Amino acid sequence: MLKRKTKIVITGGGTAGHVLPHFVLVPFYKKAGWDILYIGTSGIEKQLVSEQGIRFRTIRAGKLRRHFSFQNFLDIFLVLWGTLQSLWILFREKPQIVFSKGGFVSVPVALAAWCLRIPVVTHESDLSPGLANKIIGKFSRKILCAFPDTLRFLPKDKAECVGLPVRSELASGSKDEAYAMCHFNPSDQRPVLLVMGGSQGAARINEAIEASLPDLLNNYRIIHITGRGKQNTKQGDGYFQIEYVSGALKHLLAITDFVLCRAGANSIFEMLVLRKPMLLVPLEIASRGDQVQNAKVFADKNWASVLRETEISPAKLSQSLNDLRSRAKSMQSSMEEFPAKNIAHSIFSILESIVLKLAS
Rank of each mutant, 00 (worst) to 15 (best):
E124V: 04
V195D: 00
V105W: 00
P108V: 12
V162Y: 02
C182D: 05
S187W: 13
L193P: 03
S106I: 01
R167I: 06
I136W: 01
S199H: 06
P119F: 10
L116D: 07
D188N: 11
L116E: 07
S199V: 04
D188F: 05
D176P: 05
L194N: 05
V120C: 07
G137V: 08
I89Q: 03
G198T: 02
E160R: 02
I136N: 03
Q189C: 11
W114T: 10
S172V: 13
S100F: 05
P148G: 09
D157K: 15
E177W: 13
V98K: 00
L84E: 13
I136V: 08
E124H: 05
P186T: 08
L151S: 07
D176F: 14
S125R: 01
A203P: 12
W114N: 10
S128Q: 12
I89F: 04
L154R: 00
L170T: 00
R167N: 09
L170Q: 00
L131P: 02
A203K: 11
S168I: 13
K94Q: 15
Q189G: 12
L144A: 06
T122C: 14
P191Y: 03
F139E: 08
F99E: 04
S168K: 14
F91S: 14
S187C: 15
L151Y: 09
V121K: 00
L127D: 09
L111R: 08
I89L: 07
V192E: 05
A159H: 08
D126G: 04
R152I: 13
L80E: 15
L127T: 08
G103T: 05
V109D: 03
G173M: 04
G102P: 04
L84F: 12
V192S: 06
V162F: 01
C145R: 03
V121A: 07
A146M: 06
K156H: 10
A132F: 02
A113L: 07
N133I: 09
P95A: 12
C145G: 10
F147C: 06
H183G: 11
T122R: 03
